[in-house]
Design a protein around this nucleic acid. Structure first.
Length: 810
RNA sequence: GCCCAGGUGGUGAAACUGGUAGACACGCUGGACUCAAAAUCCAGUGGUAGUGAUAUCAUGCGGGUUCGAUUCCCGCCCUGGGCACCA
């Protein structure tokens, strides 16, 4: 029976079959042992109006292959999908098009779901979650309340990153090169009342607990740098005129004797108090100027240092020297104590500042204990102390330890640790997000919405346009804002800020476990059955956003006894970016965007899946090629003909073909197990198919193996050929073939013969041939004898079952 | 500037713990089939020299270690990503 490979009919047929038979519904079967339970998680998509792009199916196909393969090996696999649907892009899109974000979000989700289904992914769709649904965000709000009650959510009036175009505050993690991550507008600082999450309380654990995880080193590295732990000392300096204590943080307490001036951030609270009358005007002007600067201007490294003298002096506690106090915007209020001691001889920033303003530069450190002649730049590395009183002559490391002890004994300093990581700015002055479930009462202060009243539903609003005033659009709905205080019953107002986009994704992997549970966000039993996530696949761009935030929430939930694992994601893999056919990043403006729908219509989902896996290893960046895609279509057609246009018998296949089949099983297995090299598994299957194509007739058992090892890659296609072979559906529950270890190695091999490391001959010999025989065979070869000639053989190196190298004197 | 990843044919890429560089595919060239084209099948395909067997050069560049280096070490160049006054 010969017929064409009608992919669209085949794919529809099997998609319908899976849906109707709930083939991929997952249940917590207790008889499956723990080590055979696998939780495989994809980063859920943000359903934009543009639909799925080709990058999505890359990671999703990889995980789908892994899941289908593991099921065939007898694993119980949890493989869910959902939608990250609250947040700025949906809202901005809604504003642009004039539709309500709820409507556009729902339409986008429907489209995404359709596209995902058309790719044949084996998700258990009964577990779908969507972060913007009240049933879901009820629990996001609930977790927030636990954070609030645990003292980890707090209100603060701090200068935050503000985007004038999106009209909202942003987290540090959402600012890229001084610009808004979403719209690219420069970010400015704005003083605002904010809800903050105390992620810094977990800084140490976020750092330490990451070490044993099987994550890409680069991602761990990124997180480590973002957290930015640095050890040093806090030292108190006294302000001479007022007696105030000025606390500074330094990683180089060993350079204390070289401090020739101090610098406060312009926003430092002491500035107002300590500045002298004479300097007031210039200090105030400088502060004003700083306020007007955008972050971009302020952090521009190329600009010259600026600053003004406050008129005040501080006393250096190690030598009682009086040193001037300046303010400058190169000192940040948000790091350390917002104040530094400046050691121009040993810190490049201070050096530049001191040079510009003619401040003293005193060397207190050199490579060999002798002062350097002249300094063109700060000497910043470790060395031996000079000009440092009783500490002179000490090595940097010892000095640090000794001086810190000394400061501690005197009660004017101590060991201190600082982090680059800042607390998480958690409120957004926008509409499309989870309402923060808090009530402000004049009498009782900030009171949580009672848990029984959750979810606190996002109200309908006439205009959801951002106000730009620092208030969210919710503030305008007086009937929603004005409530009775849950504690005293008096008049109170709701918090009108909403949560950031990252809130819902912080814990979605937990909701998949038990999506319909109305009493808890996930039952302990279900958690115990599946957690932690065994494999998590998604984009590296989330290294310091989602992946850090969700680890923080998870640790908090762990401390609360709500989850039982310290870390949520054991293995992490990042698919590489797919570039356009021109090698450029895919974008609408470049006109090089590939739409998965078009590919599926023209070539089918199976070809699409195969091609995306064949392009290269999962983790590397790679350009799209339509010709390459066609190659995979041709390959499937070739396999199709094998099953539909050839004679299929039970006559055993030739020995070499049988061996090749077993080698192929093994190769496909190890490549899937690598979680990365799906491309070479396909290459190996191509080699097998090329070999089979040469045969006059096909052996049924070999075709059966081929169908099963190809099934995770091209599932619709393989369901069909499985049926053609006469098997009942579905191939997804067929058993993964076992290879025979005896058949994966050949009886003979090609022995390489080198002369002085250069390939000169290759001889077919039996596996296991001993070294002496190898030598004898090599030295019998006329070619080799010709190369050796009369030269003296210095030595012979033999690697059994591989090669022999004859070293001669030339 | 600092940190990380990576540079292999015309293209995507392969190569076990150092052991045949370029598997598999795309593209290209030639052939078969066809009135012709598409599809399919067959053959060839890193550069140079040679009809050919073959030789020689070749994994970003320059050194080194080794019988032997795409693989290990040192220095440099380029590309991609991250951080960017964090004291």
């Amino acid at each position: 029976m010969s017929r064409d490979y009608d992919f669209s009919a085949i794919e529809k047929k099997w998609r319908d079959y899976w849906e109707k038979n709930k083939t991929f519904k997952t249940v917590e079967n207790p008889s499956v042992p723990e080590e055979k339970r696998f939780y495989c998680l994809d980063m859920f998509p943000y359903p934009s109006g543009a639909g799925l792009h080709v990058g999505h199916p890359e990671g999703y196909t990889a995980t789908d292959i892994i899941c289908r393969y593991l099921r065939m090996k007898g694993y119980n696999v949890l493989h869910p999908m959902g939608f990250d649907s609250f947040g700025l892009p949906a809202e901005n899109y809604a504003i642009k098009t004039g539709t309500h974000p709820r409507e556009s979000t729902h339409a986008n989700i429907d489209n995404f779901r359709r596209q995902l289904k058309s790719l044949g992914f084996s998700y258990d769709w009964d577990r779908e979650v969507s972060t913007c649904e009240p049933d879901y965000y009820k629990w996001t709000q609930w977790i927030f309340l636990q954070l609030f009650k645990g003292g980890l959510a707090y209100e603060a009036n701090v200068p935050i990153n503000w985007c004038n175009s999106c009209k909202t505050g942003l987290a540090n993690e959402e600012v890229v090169n001084g610009r808004c991550d979403r719209c690219g507008e420069p970010v400015v600082k704005k003083d605002m009342r904010q809800w903050m999450l105390r992620i810094t309380a977990y800084a140490d654990r976020l750092m330490e607990d990451m070490e044993p995880l099987d994550w890409p080193e680069s991602i761990k590295h990124l997180q480590r740098n973002w957290i930015g732990r640095s050890e040093g000392a806090e030292v108190d300096f006294q302000v001479k005129s007022t007696g105030d204590m000025l606390k500074i943080f330094t990683t180089r307490p060993d350079t204390l004797f070289g401090a020739t001036y101090m610098v406060l951030a312009p926003e430092h609270p002491l500035v107002e108090k300590i500045m002298s009358k004479d300097e007031r005007a210039s200090v105030e002007e400088y502060i004003l100027k700083t306020k007007m600067k955008s972050d971009l201007e302020r952090t521009d490294l190329n600009k010259e240092k600026t600053g003004v003298f406050t008129g005040a002096f501080a006393v250096n506690p190690v030598n009682s020297k009086e040193i001037p106090i300046w303010i400058s915007d190169y000192v940040l209020i948000s790091y350390g104590t917002g104040a530094i001691m400046a050691v121009p001889a040993h810190d490049q920033r201070d050096f530049e500042f001191a040079t510009k303003f003619g401040l003293d530069i005193i060397q207190v450190l050199s490579p060999d204990g002798k002062p350097l002649d002249k300094l063109d730049a700060a000497f910043e590395i470790d060395g031996i102390a000079i000009n440092s009183g009783e500490f002179t002559g000490m090595k940097t490391a010892d000095f640090k330890k000794k001086i810190t002890e000394w400061l501690e004994k005197k009660g004017i300093g101590k060991l201190a640790v600082n982090y680059k990581l800042r607390d998480w700015v958690f409120s957004r002055q926008r509409f499309w997000g989870e309402p923060i479930p808090l009530i402000h009462c004049e009498k009782c202060g900030t009171v949580p919405v009672p848990e029984s009243e959750l979810p606190l539903v996002l109200p309908d609003v006439k205009t959801y346009l951002p106000t730009g005033t620092g208030e969210s659009p919710l503030a305008a709905i007086t009937e929603w804002v004005n409530v009775k205080c849950p504690e005293c019953g008096g008049p109170a107002k709701r918090e009108t800020n909403t949560m950031p986009q990252w809130a819902g994704s912080c814990w979605y992997y937990l909701r998949y476990l038990d999506p319909l549970n109305m009493k808890e966000f996930a039952s302990k039993e279900k958690q115990k059955y599946w957690m932690p996530v065994d494999l998590y696949v998604g984009g590296a761009e989330h290294a310091v956003l989602h992946l850090l935030y969700s680890r923080f929430w998870h640790k908090f939930l762990f401390d609360e006894g709500i989850v039982d694992t310290k870390e949520p994601f054991m293995k992490l893999r990042n698919p590489g970016i797919i570039l356009g056919e021109d090698g450029q990043k895919m974008s609408k403006s470049r006109g090089n965007v590939i739409n998965p729908d078009d590919i599926i219509t023209s070539f089918g989902a199976d070809t699409m899946r195969m091609y995306e896996m064949f392009m290269g290893p999962l983790d590397v960046m790679k350009p799209w090629s339509t010709n390459g895609l066609k190659g995979l279509f041709k390959f499937l057609e070739k396999v199709w003909r094998l099953f539909t246009s050839s004679t299929i018998t039970s006559t055993p296949a030739p020995d070499d073909v049988l061996r090749l089949t077993h080698k192929t099983i093994k190769k496909v297995e190890t490549d899937i197990d690598s979680l990365n090299n799906f491309n070479t598994a396909i290459s190996q299957m191509m080699i097998l198919v090329n070999e089979l194509t040469r045969l006059k007739e096909q052996n049924r058992d070999i075709l059966s193996v081929l169908a099963r090892i190809l099934a995770p890659y091209a599932p619709h296609f393989c369901e069909e050929i499985w049926e053609i072979l006469g098997n009942p559906p579905s191939i997804s529950s067929a058993e993964w073939p076992k290879y025979d270890p005896a058949l994966v190695v050949d009886e003979t091999y090609l022995m390489i013969v080198q002369v002085n490391g250069k390939l000169r001959e290759s001889i077919d010999v039996e596996r296991g041939t001993d070294i002496e025989t190898m030598k004898a065979l090599a030295l019998k070869s006329p070619k080799i004898l010709k190369w050796i000639g009369n030269a003296e053989i210095v030595k012979v190196i033999a690697v059994p079952d591989k090669l022999i190298n004859i070293v001669i004197k030339q």
